[in-house]
Write a protein that binds this DNA or RNA. Structure first.
Length: 902
RNA sequence: GCCGAAGUGGCGGAAUGGCAGACGCGCCGGACUCAAAAUCCGGUCCCCGCAAGGGGGUGUGGGUUCAAGUCCCACCUUCGGUACCA
């Protein structure tokens, strides 16, 4: 309807078996691929080298080894299980540990899931961002989402304990706790450790005495969602395990705690805490009175910003510190708060031994009494309290200590990513079934062996089931389809996978299917991939910045590695279109409304109450026919001293354009707009509103504006007084005059350029200017009008075609061409002639001290010298220069003259 | 808190460091009309002035420059995203 020229032959439907056959096939490709970190490439699982010791253990060990390396693998992952609803919930569906619907308790429990090893591709997903033409903010979001950080893994040994508990008491291998840190240089400052509550070692190391507290804390943590654990836990919580570990550099025994600010899913699920140089550790240490040891000396500027420094300076270093020393401390203690009194005492001590230099004093305070500082220093600096490494810069220290750790076998360099593997299964009925079989033994129990279906067995359809409600236990609904579930193949019994794939699966690769939507032999013919990829331009919302766009890139790279697509990146250029908001609408606060209720009612206004998270507002509207959106008009608004008031009252209004929504009743239905103004008007208005990327409010008056423009264009060519479509007599086969040619070619240039940059709004204004010029002409050359229609056609295709037809087809009873005659669809895009763009004369502003004081009209090709002379000799300028000396003259040929005077 | 984007007339918005406000909406005046709608023509950033002309002006405060909406520094506001990533 809007003339988008979509090729409906290429329509795809991700839920069609002909489509998801290939979604399942791609899953099989993922299943059949392992990532070779040396070659930085996904390779067939058959090429995976099997270590001899694995080989020696036999077939099932080899199989397990392979399964552990595949890009599609199974793992136990905690999910939000709501037993009352009998289903697994998404994070958004859980509020305060209760289900959004029904408010039933939700617990996190581990469940077998399929995951995709996107983390293997993290480095390439990061690197290849450099090769695509995407908006920088989106690139940055992906960059941060992947979240690469370089550091070291360090092992903290657990001491042998007299009780025999802890340290591998049950013969387990765990004699150490491994942590990841980006700041190995702060190792000397690690004064305690924290494990995530879910960390497997927690149960092993916890002492008998601490068991009840630890258990209680773990239970509490399990009932919180990820969101709450992070969002709500502003205050640090945690419990001591009773166990200690050995700091590998200082050989100190440091306590091990558990706390939910440490996430089990990042790094190793355990941290070394350096409270002096990490915000979170600092807060935690303060809350639980754990020792804080500074190991990085901040630069002076940091000290000078701290409260401690300000306190010292405000008290005066030189004289006043004698006071407490001379027995007047009672008086001082009364007047200073505790914090300051502490400082006074410490400063006094330092002052005695070190002298009165404020910087020296503060340096000493920092090294010895860091508790006095209200914040911690987390940037780089110079090493202190770090044994042989003292005095080193952070970068140097990091390098050397990592080398030392590696040499001693206590740690190693390590790169970590925030990006996690992609949880790819859902416990729902709707979704693509996994093309996977689980082998069963004679007793009908899974053996652990998994068997992929072959391409010839695809698509695997969803079974018909009586109901697709949850099963009431964590088993997905497909488990109820008994007939579908069990399969015998090559004499072996199998059970089908009962999880289904998420929504993302189908949308991850649809751009490839567009190229060859009906192909039954392949997801797409290689020649077509070669011909079309990569996608030249992808227009989409910014909400897909990280998830969809990252998932698609990942799948594409796997397909690339396996030789199924010819390029490494799917989308060459990406543009985020902005959202179109509803029309500007005025509201008052609910409280303001209640107060002024009678006044507002007297004006006959309608009120729509809208509640959001924080507040309730009352939208004020005009009464209108059922369902019609009628916001206040400008006549009903008064603006005074920067305030917006409801006219005739002192009620302050807030005017704002909001997202279109049913609740607000401000939804614009495109069908209505098309009925009233036509498809070209709707299309043109959307392009004229403003930059494509910007969020913009809708305006019905704006639609009328472009509608009027299209009418003017029509009347430029067509005699609208007649019933039939008939050319105006003004349209003639004559040579255009010079000025018209110049404007026409300038318009072609502007429209061509603006289309490239997708600045549709300015392209349209250029054509409006052309129209304004042509309207004034009594003779309108046919050639000019034809060219105009060609550049107008991408913006208003229907109208441009109609006019083109009238311009090119001789009058006939029907007035229309036949058989492709009289269409502009196949005409080439017009080109512009540079030489026609230049006007004979131009107007150039003349500035004096940067202010425009006059304008001169000169030949377009005037020389720099000529321009300056013309400026100086202009009467107005001359009179203004009287009695002044020109100190400097700036002449920009064709642009301006600026005379700088004393 | 952090990250990102944006602040320009009554409104949507234009301006490779070079005449701020193109184009459109709205508004004002005029033409056409018995009248209205539609259409056409002219005007429309603010202040002083009859005018010629002058002064001010792109969120706020500084800075760079002959020249700043545009570049730099600090801040304010709005919108969007994100959540302790060691």
């Amino acid at each position: 309807m809007l003339g988008f020229s979509y090729d409906w032959e290429r329509e795809v439907d991700t839920t069609d078996p002909g489509y998801f056959k290939w979604t399942q096939w791609i899953f099989l490709v993922l299943f059949d691929t392992w990532y070779d970190y040396d070659k930085k490439k996904g390779r067939p699982i058959s090429e995976l080298p099997i270590p001899p010791d694995v080989h020696a253990k036999g077939e099932s060990a080899v199989r397990a080894y392979r399964d552990g390396k595949r890009l599609a693998y199974q793992a136990e992952v905690p999910v939000n299980w709501c037993s009352a609803l009998g289903t697994v919930l998404a994070n958004e569906e859980v509020i305060d540990g209760k289900s959004e619907r029904g408010n039933h308790p939700v617990i996190r429990m581990p469940l077998r899931q399929w995951l995709l090893r996107i983390t293997a591709y993290a480095e390439r997903l990061l690197d290849d961002l450099a090769n695509v033409d995407w908006p920088d903010p989106i690139k940055k979001m992906q960059h941060d989402w992947i979240g690469k950080s370089e550091g070291a893994e360090v092992d903290f040994d657990l001491p042998p304990s007299p009780s025999g508990r802890g340290v591998g008491a049950e013969g387990g291998p765990a004699r150490k706790i491994r942590v990841f840190t980006t700041r190995p240089d702060t190792l000397f400052g690690a004064t305690y450790m924290v494990l995530a509550p879910e960390h497997p070692l927690v149960d092993v190391i916890t002492t008998e005495k601490q068991k009840p507290a630890i258990e209680a804390y773990k239970k509490q943590a399990a009932s919180k969602s990820d969101f709450e654990r992070t969002e709500l836990a502003k205050k640090k919580t945690g419990v001591f395990t009773g166990a200690y570990a050995i700091n590998p550099v200082s050989n100190e025994m440091i306590p091990i705690w558990i706390a939910d600010y440490v996430l089990v899913s990042y790094g190793t699920g355990a941290i070394m805490a350096v409270p002096a140089h990490d915000e979170r550790d600092f807060e935690f240490a303060r809350a639980f009175k754990l020792p804080i040891r500074p190991v990085v000396l901040p630069p002076r500027e940091w000290f000078e910003k701290t409260e401690v420094f300000k306190t010292i300076v405000s008290m005066g270093v030189d004289s006043r510190f004698k006071a407490p020393l001379e027995g007047k401390s009672d008086h001082l203690a009364e007047t200073l708060h505790k914090f300051e009194a502490d400082i006074v005492e410490k400063v006094a001590q330092t002052w005695q031994t070190q002298g009165a230099d404020a910087h020296k004093i503060i340096d000493n305070l920092y090294r010895q009494s860091i508790e006095l500082f209200e914040e911690c220093y987390c940037d780089e600096g110079t090493a202190i309290n770090s044994g042989p490494f003292n005095g080193q810069t952070t970068a140097q220290f990091k390098r050397e200590i990592t080398d030392w750790l590696e040499k001693d076998g206590k740690g190693q360099r390590k790169i970590n990513y925030k990006l996690r593997d992609w949880l790819f299964s859902r416990q729902r009925y709707w979704g693509e079934p996994f093309p996977i079989l689980h082998e069963l033994d004679a007793a009908g129990q899974p053996t652990g062996a998994i068997e992929p279906l072959t391409l010839s067995e695809l698509p695997l359809l969803l079974p018909q089931v009586e109901d697709y409600k949850p099963t009431g236990n964590p088993e997905p609904p497909l488990a109820k389809a008994k007939a579908w579930l069990e399969v015998t193949k090559n004499g072996k019994r199998y059970r089908r996978e009962t999880n289904t794939m998420p929504q993302w699966a189908g949308s991850c690769w649809y751009y490839l299917r567009y190229l060859d939507p009906k192909n039954e032999q392949a997801f797409c013919a290689p020649a077509k991939l070669q011909r079309w990829l990569s996608v030249d331009l992808y227009v989409g919302g910014a909400e897909h910045a990280v998830l969809h766009l990252l998932y698609s890139r990942f799948w594409h790279k796997v397909l690339f590695d396996r030789g199924h697509v010819p390029v490494a990146e799917p989308f060459q250029r990406l543009v985020n279109q902005g959202m179109i908001l509803g029309e500007t609408d005025y509201h008052v606060d609910a409280a303001v409304y209640e107060k002024n209720r009678s006044v507002i009612e007297k004006l006959g206004l309608q009120v729509v109450r809208v509640k959001d998270e924080e507040s309730e507002i009352c939208l004020l509207r005009n009464p209108s026919a059922a369902g019609k959106f009628a916001p206040l008009t400008e006549e009903q608004i008064a603006k005074e001293r920067g305030q917006t008031l409801l006219k005739g009252t002192d009620i302050e209004l807030v005017g704002r354009a909001d997202k279109m929504s049913k609740a607000r009743g401000n939804v614009i239905n495109p069908d209505d707009v098309v009925n009233e103004y036509g498809a070209d008007s709707l299309r043109l208005y959307e392009m004229f509103m403003g930059p494509l990327e910007a969020v913009k409010p809708w305006s019905m008056r704006g639609v009328e504006g472009v509608y009027r423009f299209l009418n003017r264009v029509w009347r430029l060519v067509i005699d609208d007084r007649l019933e039939n479509v008939k050319l105006l007599d003004a349209v003639q086969d004559v040579e255009p005059d010079k000025e018209t040619m110049r404007i026409l070619h300038h318009t072609i240039q502007r429209v061509t350029h603006d289309l490239d940059t997708m600045s549709f709004n300015t392209a349209i204004s250029a054509m409006m200017e052309l129209t304004n010029h042509l309207t004034k002409q009594t003779v309108r050359p046919r050639s000019v009008m034809k060219t105009f229609m060609l550049i107008l056609s991408p913006f208003a295709p229907h109208l441009a075609e109609e006019i083109w037809n009238a311009l090119t087809v001789p009058p006939s009873p029907s007035g229309r061409g036949v058989g492709g005659e009289g269409t502009l669809a196949y005409e080439p895009w017009p080109t512009y002639d540079e030489s026609l763009l230049k006007a004979d004369t131009i107007e150039v502003p003349v500035q004096i001290n940067g202010k425009v004081r006059g304008k001169i009209t000169v030949a377009a090709d005037i020389t720099k010298e000529g321009l300056e002379a013309a400026a100086r000799s202009d009467e107005r300028i001359k009179s203004q220069l009287e009695g002044k000396t020109i100190k400097k003259v700036i002449v920009v040929p064709g642009k301006l003259v600026n005379l700088v005077v004393a």
